[in-house]
Design a protein around this nucleic acid. Structure first.
Lengths: 189, 189
DNA sequence: CTTAACTTTCAGAAATTTCTGAAAATTGTA
DNA sequence: TACAATTTTCAGAAATTTCTGAAAGTTAAG
């Protein structure tokens, strides 16, 4: 399978960015390739196109499956496994987002919850405990917010993201409508 | 400088999570330590507490400064440089968020913009071009949304994140109030 | 200017991650 | 069951990242 210059550039870039997005270079390249390619691709084709070993492809595919980013297909009369990206670009982005939330927040929330169970023994520990509590509260809120966003359907998500500075107004609207947080906010430092 | 068990656990965990958050183990540890510690800390203290070399501390501090996560201070009569976390937990989270947006989105947006300039030569390239366009649109929107969030003040951000399922209702409210996107949405596939 | 205190740099060592390729395992077909 | 096609595994090689520590650089004080 031959890649056009454009596809090549796209694939290589996703390889380089891979580590920032949570996977290694070749996994990033494989994902990019499956994303711009419409037809299902098999492991040998990936190995050839990306010039990497067959074993590496096998491991990469396993990782992409763990991320739920690819789907397995079969061609009639061909015993090979074929893969495609799992859904639309939108679906993929959502999956990456959810998966990263899990990997980047959950372990930390678990640890912090545990640290907050022990009583501080002295002044020093008390200060640390407070900080840990603050970090926990913030991350936990972030986690829930990310969850909320994940659950929105494409239409609403699009609406929200396109709001821009309109978001401010909408939030104003909300407090006026309910009056729920007006008092609290007036006591801020 | 001696760390309590709790502080130790916190610091080690942030070291391990470091790579997922964009920095290496010792940088993560240094950041965690400066975050739970109220008093300014100097490089020798960091090296001792974390049991790492003085040179490594120097490099780590430089990186944390590049992230704008720490601040330099001086104690009267002491020539050493002292550091603290740059602001409240909230400030730090915001900074990490902004910095990651820059590192994870900007380079890709730049590349994709460039790829979209060249005309597709055949059917294959045309399909790829379309996909690239989709990826670009999505990331660009995400980037702007992240920017919008960054600009909200703490109060509004808190309000937004606490909305939970109320977000749906608010978005409904919005379309009813303006009617701006009602037509567009009805044409979705 | 000199010195001592402190910080930075960077070559190479150590640690970690990624990759290869041959062998083992699995699977469908006859 | 036997066999051939295909995938997976994994030990060690290669590549990359991180870390050390000694030397070089900087700066303030006398």
């Amino acid at each position: 399978m031959k890649l056009s210059n454009q596809a090549q550039a796209f694939v290589l870039h996703f390889g380089e960015m891979g580590s920032r997005w949570g996977f290694n270079r070749t996994v990033g390249q494989m994902f990019a390739l499956l994303t711009i390619h419409n037809e299902p691709v098999n492991a040998d084709q990936l190995a050839e196109a990306l010039k990497i070993s067959r074993g590496n492809v096998s491991m990469g595919l396993k990782e992409l499956q763990a991320w739920r980013l690819i789907e397995l297909h079969h061609q009639p009369g061909d015993r090979k496994d074929y893969f495609t990206a799992a859904g639309s670009i939108w679906d993929l982005a959502r999956t990456v987002f959810e998966e990263r939330r899990k990997r980047e927040l959950d372990p930390t929330l678990t640890l912090l919850r545990q640290l907050l169970l022990t009583e501080p023994r002295d002044e020093q520990e008390s200060v640390a405990q407070e900080k840990i509590q603050e970090v926990y509260s913030l991350l936990e809120m972030l986690d829930q917010f990310a969850n909320t966003l994940s659950k929105l359907d494409e239409k609403d998500l699009l609406k929200l993201m396109k709001l821009g500075s309109g978001l401010n107004k909408l939030l104003d609207l909300k407090s006026k409508a309910t009056g729920s947080s007006a008092k609290k906010n007036s006591t801020r430092k």
